[in-house]
Design a protein around this nucleic acid. Structure first.
Lengths: 394, 394
DNA sequence: ATACCAATGTTATTTGTGCAAACAAACTCT
DNA sequence: AGAGTTTGTTTGCACAAATAACATTGGTAT
C-alpha cells in the first residue's frame, strides 16, 4: 500500500556499452599514443564528452595518464595521453631448453629479463619461476604489477587452466596457475606459445587491424595459431591449430605420433636435417643452427636441404590458405633466420594454386622470444580490458 | 545565448543493447516455442518487464504472436507466444541440374515447392526464378513475405553480392540480387550452398547451441562450410572453406583445377565411380545413383568403391579435425544415401589419430535439398534479426 | 461467500549510458 | 583588449533495463 522509494538498487544496465566503448578508447589510445582526447573522439567516432568521461575513468584506474601539453599554432593546447607505464606485467616464456622471465610494460617494452634453468619436476620448476619473478619484481619497487602471463610449449585447457598436451615438457596436469597465484598473489594467465605470438602481433605488432591470419612456428616441430574474425580459434576442446600432424603425403618417415606423412616430417627443422643427411651422407651431423649457418655461407647441400624444407612448408600452407583464406601468414622459429632463402620458395609454392584472389602476405617474425613474452603480456591485458578486439562503434 | 530545445535529435545510443536483447528474446522464443513471457525471462536472464516490452515490440512488428492461454494448477495462466507463421520467406535452391523454389515460414516449415528448369543464360534464368516466385507468392495472399533467400552452387562475394566462383553455373558476375530485387520488390540475400546448409542446422536443426562445426558436401565435388565460435568463417576474400582442392596425396589423377592430389579426387562421388571402374573394368558405366543402389543391393565391387571413397573422406577429415577441433562434422550430398556403409568407415579413419580428446560427432543430413532451402531462409532471418547468434546476457 | 495464496503480466520509478549543444579554458594574432 | 580557434567540460535530454510495487487471474482454505 505504501510505496517505499527504492533505497539503493545499483542497476548496471548499460554497462556493456560503456565497457565496450572503454575498450575502444583504450585500443585507439594504445595504437596512436600519445594522443589527445579530441583525437580519440575523431578516430573512435565517439563524442568528445563521452571520451572525456571514459578517459577520466581510465586515469582513475591508472591504465593511462596525462602527459605533456603539445604546442600547436592556434587554439587551446591538447594534453596528450599515454599508457601508464608504471603498470607492468610479469611474463615467462617456458621452453623445453630454457625459461626466460621478463618485466613488460603496457606498451610491450621490456624493462628487464632473466634466465631460469629448466627443471623437469613441475613443482620445482614453477617454484623457480616464482622466485625469479619475485626477484624481478623487487627491482622495480615503484611499478605496479598488473598480473602474470606465461607462454607454454603445449596446449592449455581453458577450463582447468592446466597444460593438456606438451610433448616436450613434463608439466602436464600440474596446477601451474594455482601454484603461481599462491606464491605471487597475482592473477596468472597461461597460453600456448603460438597463440601468444599471434596475440603479440595483434596487440603490439603487424596484425593491428587484420582479422584473419595464420601463424606457423617452425622449429623442431611445427605448430600454428589461427585468427578468424579477429579472434583466436580454440576449437571445441582447445586443440584447434594442431597443424604439425596434418597428413600431407602418402609415405615418408614415421612421425613420433605414429602416423606417416605428417606435415612436421617435411617442414620442420628436423626435416631439413634429414634432407641434408640424405645428400651429404650420414657422417655429417650438424645442429640446426650449424646447418642454417652453412647455408648462409654458401654451402650448396645445405641450401638444397632448406629448399626442400621450404617446399614442404609451402605444401602444407596450400591447405591452410584454401581452408582459411587468411590475409597474412606469419612465420616464427628457426626458419626465420634464413628467411631470405626460404621465404621466396614458400611464396612461389603458394602461388601455384588455382583459386583466384590475392595470395596472403608472408611475414617472418625476427624475434620469436620477444613475441612470446609480449604475447604473454597481451593475454593478461586482454583478460583485464575485455575480450573483443578492435570492434567498431557505439 | 538562447538555448533551443533540440527539435528532433534522434539519438540512438542504447539501440545496440535493445537490438541485442531483442535478438536474444527471439532466439529463446524460437527454440522453445510455445513459451510464456515469464519463461523467456527465466531462460534469457532478462527481467520480466524488459521481456514484456520487447515482446510488445516483436508483436507490433509481427514477428511473433500471442497463442493460447495455458491451464495451470495455481496462479494466473500464462499466454503462450509463438513465431508468427503468417510471415514467410521465398527461397530458391539453385543447382547445376535444377532449381527448386519454396515458401518457408519462420519455423523452417515448407508451405509449397515448385521446380524451375535450368537456363544457362543468367538473365533468363533469374527471370524464370522471379516468375516462379511471383506465382508461389500469389498462392498465399494472406501471408506476408519478409524477403528472398537464394542458395547458390558457388562462392558469393559479400561486397558486390555477386557470384565470384561457380564451376558449374555460368552466372558469375551477373547481378542476380539486383535483378530479383527489382522484379520482386523484396530484399534478396545470396549464400553459398554449404553455408546455407550450416545455417539451416544452426537455426532449425542439430547445431543449436554448438559453436564449432564443419559441414562437408560430397557430391560430384567436395565443398565445405566452417563454423567457428558460432559464426561462419568467410576469410579475407570470402573464399574460406574451399576444401575440395586441398592436397592430400602426392600423386593420382589430375584435377580440373590443374593440381594433383586434390581431396576432391579421392572423396567425391566421381572418385567413387573411378574406383568402381578400376575394379569392374571400363565397360561398366553406372551413374552415381546407380552405383549407390548397387551397393545397397549387395554388389561387392560397388561396396569396395564406396569404401575407398570413405577412406578418402576420412583422410581429408583428419586435416580438418586437427585444424579446427570441431564438436560436430556434418555431411551432405550423395554420400548420405549410403551413410550406414560409409559412416562407420569414415569414423574409424578419423579415430586413428594421435591427438587426445573426444573425436567429433559425425552426422549425415538426410535431406540436403531441404537444408539448403531452409538455410536460404535463415540467411534472410539473420540479416533481419541481427548478426550475432545465441550470445548471452544483458 | 470471503479471505488468502500463487503465479503471470504491467506500470512507475530509478539508474546509467551516450549524444548534442552550450560553455569554459587556453592560446594566437591583430 | 578583443576576435578567432581549438581543446576539453558541463548540462539537458532520450532511451534502455532493473527494480519493486501493482494489477490480473485463477484456485483453495476457512
Amino acid at each position: 500500500m505504501t510505496r517505499l522509494p527504492s533505497p539503493a538498487p545499483s542497476t548496471r544496465t548499460a554497462a556493456p556499452i560503456r565497457d565496450h566503448n572503454r575498450d575502444l578508447v583504450l585500443e585507439v589510445l594504445r595504437c596512436n599514443q600519445p594522443i589527445s582526447r579530441v583525437d580519440i573522439a575523431r578516430r573512435s567516432g565517439l563524442q568528445r564528452s563521452t571520451v572525456s568521461a571514459i578517459v577520466d575513468g581510465l586515469i582513475e584506474e591508472r591504465w593511462i595518464r596525462e602527459g605533456q601539453v603539445l604546442k600547436t599554432a592556434r587554439g587551446r593546447r591538447p594534453t596528450m595521453l599515454t599508457m601508464n607505464d608504471d603498470l607492468v606485467i610479469l611474463v615467462a616464456d617456458v621452453r623445453p631448453t630454457q625459461t626466460i622471465l621478463a618485466v613488460v610494460d603496457l606498451n610491450g617494452r621490456f624493462l628487464d629479463r632473466t634466465l631460469v634453468p629448466v627443471i623437469t619436476n613441475a613443482k620445482q620448476g614453477v617454484d623457480a619461476i616464482a622466485e625469479g619473478m619475485k626477484r624481478l619484481q623487487a627491482q622495480f619497487p615503484d611499478k605496479t604489477c598488473e598480473g602474470v602471463g606465461i607462454s607454454l610449449p603445449g596446449r592449455v585447457d581453458k577450463r582447468s587452466h592446466r597444460l593438456a598436451l606438451a610433448p616436450n615438457l613434463p608439466w602436464v596436469g600440474f596446477d601451474i596457475r594455482g601454484a603461481l597465484q599462491k606464491r605471487l598473489g597475482l592473477q596468472v594467465e597461461l597460453e600456448n606459445a603460438a597463440n601468444a605470438c599471434m596475440l603479440s602481433e595483434q596487440w603490439f605488432g603487424r596484425l593491428q587491424g587484420i582479422r584473419n591470419a595464420v601463424l606457423v612456428t617452425i622449429s623442431e616441430g611445427v605448430g600454428a595459431a589461427l585468427l578468424v574474425n579477429g579472434n583466436l580459434v580454440e576449437g571445441a576442446t582447445g586443440m584447434a591449430g594442431e597443424l604439425g600432424h596434418i597428413p600431407i603425403a602418402d609415405s615418408g618417415p614415421q612421425c613420433a605420433c605414429g602416423q606417416v606423412g605428417c606435415w612436421e616430417m617435411f617442414a620442420s627443422s628436423r626435416a631439413a636435417l634429414r634432407y641434408f643427411h640424405e645428400s651429404a651422407g650420414p657422417s655429417q651431423t650438424p645442429t640446426i643452427q650449424q646447418l642454417l649457418n652453412m647455408e648462409a655461407s654458401g654451402n650448396e647441400k645445405a641450401r638444397i636441404a632448406l629448399e626442400k624444407q621450404a617446399r614442404g612448408i609451402g605444401r602444407g600452407l596450400r591447405i591452410v590458405t584454401a581452408t582459411f583464406d587468411p590475409e597474412v601468414i606469419l612465420f616464427a622459429g628457426d626458419i626465420t633466420l634464413r628467411w631470405d632463402t626460404v621465404g621466396p620458395i614458400v611464396a612461389s609454392e603458394l602461388s601455384n594454386r588455382m583459386l583466384t584472389g590475392a595470395p596472403p602476405k608472408l611475414i617472418a617474425l625476427a624475434d620469436g622470444e620477444a613475441a612470446r613474452l609480449r604475447g604473454a603480456a597481451a593475454v593478461v591485458l586482454q583478460r583485464h580490458t575485455g575480450f573483443k578486439r578492435l570492434t567498431v562503434l557505439r
